[in-house]
Structures are given as C-alpha cells and as structure tokens.
Design a protein around this nucleic acid. Structure first.
Length: 468
RNA sequence: GGCCCGUUCGUCUAGUGGUUAGGACUCCAGGUUUUCAUCCUGGCAACAGGAGUUCGAUUCUCCUACGGGCUACCA
C-alpha cells in the first residue's frame, strides 16, 4: 500500500516556517515512498480564518515547489459530513449534548486547581435533554471518554506513548453554533482522505489519544502517527512573531532561495548522517526517512541559514538567479540591458553574496556612476598624488584598443611598472574611483564588464573631484 | 497544579558499554588574494546533576533539575 499523507495548515496567517518544515517532511515522505501528498485547509475557526491566508499558503507552497495532489480540501465545505458523523456518535451513545453554559463552567474551573470537565451532562435522562431541546437552549456536543483504560500508540518518532483515560476530558466536538472542533474534524478528514501516516508537530502528541478515542468510537482504523520536534526561537521559546521573520513570504522577500530554506529546515531535526550539509532537493528526496528524525526541539539559527544561503547562491546558475531576483524585485537593473550582461554581473557577485538582496545591493555601480564615494575608502586610497595618477592612467587606458580582461590586466601591470606605483595602490585607487567603494570583483573583470567609455568617464569624474 | 515529551560544544548535530567524544555554523588567530568574498591552516568550546547496574558508563535504569507541549465552545 502506498502511503497517503497530508499537510493541514489553518489559514490564520502567513505560512509559518514551522509549517513549512512539517509540509516538507510530509512531502519528502510521500516522494520517497511513492505516496500521495494532499493539502487540507483547516478553517473551522471562522473567526480567525481568512481566505487571503489560504491563497498565501497555496502561493508559498508553489514557491517552495511542493506539489500536492488534486484540489485542497477545505473543512468549511464539509459541514454536512461532520454533522452526519456527529449524529452517528450521538445515536450510538459515544457522544452527548451538554447544556452547561460557559459561565457555569468557568466558575467550576476557578474553584479547582486541577480541572477536568466534571461530566455533568454525561448521564442525564432523555427526558431531561428533550426538555432542554424543547426550550431551545444552547448546547455543545461532547465525546464520551471511557471512564478507565489506557490508550496506547506507537509514534514513529517518539516511540510508545501511553495515556490513561482518566487524564482526559469529555472534550467538545461541536460548538453551540454547531460547528465542529479540531480534534474531531481531523479524525473525520484523515479517515475520509484515507491518510495512512499523520506527520505533524509535536504539539499534537497530547491530542493524539483523544483522536484515537474518536477513531475507536467510529470503529475506524487509526493511521500511523509521526510527530516532529518543535522549532524554537533563539530564546528557546516556541518560534513566533516575537522572533522576527517567521513567514515564508518574508524569507522570499529577504532574498532566500526555496532550496536554501528547504535545505536548512530539513537539517532542523533530521540529518542523513553525512558530513556534507549542503543538499539539493533530489538528495533529500532520495535519503529522507522518518527513522532519522530527532526528538529534540531545535533552535532556528539565522547565521547558519545565511551561510547555507550563500552556498546555494554560489552554486546556482546565473540564469536561475536572475529569475529569482526579478520575482522579488522586478525593476532591478535599468531597462535596455541585455540578459547576458546581467548574467555576467550576477556571476561576478554571486560568490560574494549571502542572499539575492546582497546581489541587488552590490550591483549599484554596474548601473550608475558613483555619486558618493565611501569615506573610508577615500581616506585609505586617495592621496595628494591620486589626481595625477588617475589622469595619466585614463590617458593610458584610452590607448588600450582591445578592451578585454587580459589587455586591461596588461595595461595595469605596465602602468604600475613604468610609473613605479604599486599594483595594489593603483588598483585600489581605480576601484574607489570607478565603484565608489573598496569591495567587489577583480578590477580587470570589472573594467571590461563596465566598458571602456564608462571607466574613463568615471576616472575623469573622480579626477575632477580630486583636483577641486 | 496535572499529564506527556525532551536534555552531547553558544547553535544544528554524529556517536559508542572501553573513542584524544567527530563534523557543521558562529567567534578568534594566521595564510592565500589588488579589495571584498571564497579558499586553506589552527584555536576556543559539550555528554544537565545525583544515585544504581557494571571491571568500566556520555551510552542502560531510577530520581532531581531545567526546557518544551497539552490541559479552550484555537488549530
């Protein structure tokens, strides 16, 4: 039997980085085992769920390249089915109506330190319930938890988990407005979707026994469960908005590649046992297994993400990088420049960039003459004799007919020799004049890329400023 | 409070009943490089604590501490 897995986010915000990890592990598991990956939108919380978030989640999954089969299933479209199952549970005595009010329960809760719903409506007579129904009083539906017994399941990551029934509430499966709650819908959906492996966050371990009881009441088979360790912020607390960027789209806008995020997240709580840590998707797909998942919660480390990002950028083709850059900054580079020219720029910058944003930020001098010159660089490289130096170098450059890397290099070498100027000093002066800063690709590369005309113009500009 | 889960360098992790406890990121010091980045070399740095089992425990068991999760008419 081929496995069926699902990713089931609730559309109450951007796709969270923790959600991406859960989706990724589900997806990898499906790919590795020739299974099916499904998407389900858990929007039973009408208050907080928004369509816009559903769209964003789908868009983010697309950006990451996670392909789910068929259309996403929305819980909000399954009300009828939930009602049908609830009816069945009611009829078979596995669930019951509870007419206790919120206020009433709050009061009880405050009286006790260790509160469990006291089951005050569990064994009322039919007449009593009929009575209340006649009066149209509000009620919720609760599941009838066995009074004693033990619930056991074997988690594929955490191993044996045992829970005593006495620990469990008769929890609510349908609210007073009739809408079903999470622990109930998740069971009905997973069953109906024929999910074979439930792979989700560790925060659901405690929910699992409750869900198993519903499977039991319905006489349905339970799926396998695999819980994933949490991802924490640098303070060791559960990752949340307080830790800054947690939304997938934010990471995209910050200039991270999908492969970087996937690679990093895969390494959080899982590792293939290799010393190398830079992986492409294919490798993950081939090597993924639930057995290698850790139990320990992992802290999200932006420094390592940045390093990994640099690795992926460096390895990426310039063509791909250009596409990615355009997707986050469509107006990067002035109109009229050929893609070939932009590829060259990218190939010179990608080795010294951690993110796409780094490439964008460093590319300014390829497009415009420097307006401002970095003060540090000026102090370091521009002296009294620089004006004269630039002037005579510009004159020499003018005579360089074949404006290519090698000839420019030769020109620089020759000038340095004849004028008794150290090559380093010369180049740094040129760099400040041409780029406005002290960092960047090799000078001859840069000059050939910018073109003779541009270089000489910039040298003249700098010389003018210096002689003022 | 109750229940559940976890605990190897600052972080991500490997690992075994006997190892100089390995790697990666970060940080520091050198080197290469016209600059930056890369790259190379070296360095700092961990088995939470206590008992038990054992000839021997980081590894097995128990307890404690600490951290996280659940305990909603959230998911």
């Amino acid at each position: 039997m081929n496995p069926v897995v699902r990713f089931a986010p609730s559309p109450t915000g951007q796709l969270h980085i923790g959600g991406v990890r859960t989706a990724l592990f589900n997806y990898l598991f499906a790919l590795k085992n020739n299974g099916t990956f499904l998407l389900r939108i858990e929007d039973t919380d009408i208050e907080r769920s928004k369509d816009i978030f559903t769209e964003q989640i789908i868009e983010s999954l697309g950006w990451l390249g996670f392909k789910y089969q068929g259309n996403p299933i929305k819980q909000s479209s399954r009300t009828k089915r939930y009602q049908e199952v609830i009816e069945y549970l009611l009829k078979t005595g596995s669930a019951y109506r509870c007419f206790a009010t919120v206020q009433e329960l709050d009061k009880l809760r405050n009286e006790k330190d260790n509160y469990l719903y006291p089951r005050i409506w569990r064994d009322r007579s039919e007449k009593e319930i009929e009575d209340k129904l006649q009066k149209k009083e509000n009620y919720v539906i609760r599941i009838k938890i066995p009074l004693n017994g033990n619930i056991h399941f074997e988690d594929l990551v955490y191993g044996d988990i045992n829970t005593d029934c006495s620990e469990l509430d008769d929890f609510i499966i349908a609210r007073s407005d009739g809408t079903p709650t999470y622990n109930f819908t998740v069971v009905v959906d997973d069953h109906d979707m024929q999910v074979s492996h439930v792979i989700r966050g560790e925060d659901h371990i405690s929910n699992t026994p409750k869900q198993i009881l519903i499977y039991d009441a319905l006489k349905w088979d339970t799926p396998e469960f695999a819980h994933l360790p949490m991802i924490l912020g640098s303070d060791g607390k559960r990752l949340s908005k307080r830790h800054g960027a947690v939304g997938t789209q934010t990471y995209r806008d910050l200039g991270y590649l999908p492969d970087t995020l996937i690679n990093y997240l895969a390494l959080l709580g899982w590792n293939p046992g290799t010393e190398d840590e830079v992986f492409n998707f294919q490798f993950l797909m081939d090597n993924f297994s639930l057995e290698k998942i850790n139990k320990k919660a992992a802290v999200f480390d932006n420094k390592k993400l940045d390093w990994l990002s640099g690795q992926h950028i460096m390895k990426s083709e310039s063509e791909e990088l250009l596409d990615s850059i355009r997707s986050i900054k469509p107006d990067w580079a002035p109109n009229g420049l050929s893609d070939e020219y932009l590829f060259s720029i990218i190939s010179h910058l990608k080795g010294r960039s951690k993110t796409l944003l780094d490439i964008i930020n460093q590319s300014e001098y390829f497009f415009n003459d420097p307006i401002k010159y970095d003060q540090n660089a000026v102090a370091k490289c521009w002296g009294e004799d620089t004006s004269e130096l630039l002037k005579s170098f510009a004159e020499k450059a003018l005579t360089c007919l074949d404006w290519k890397d090698e000839s420019i290099e030769a020109c620089i070498n020759d000038f340095s020799e004849k004028k008794y100027v150290s090559k380093g000093k010369l180049i740094q002066s040129l760099r400040v004049s041409i780029c406005g800063s002290l960092t960047g690709p090799s000078m001859a590369n840069l000059m050939s890329l910018l073109g003779k005309e541009t270089c000489i113009r910039r040298l003249n500009n700098a010389q003018k400023i210096l002689s003022e």
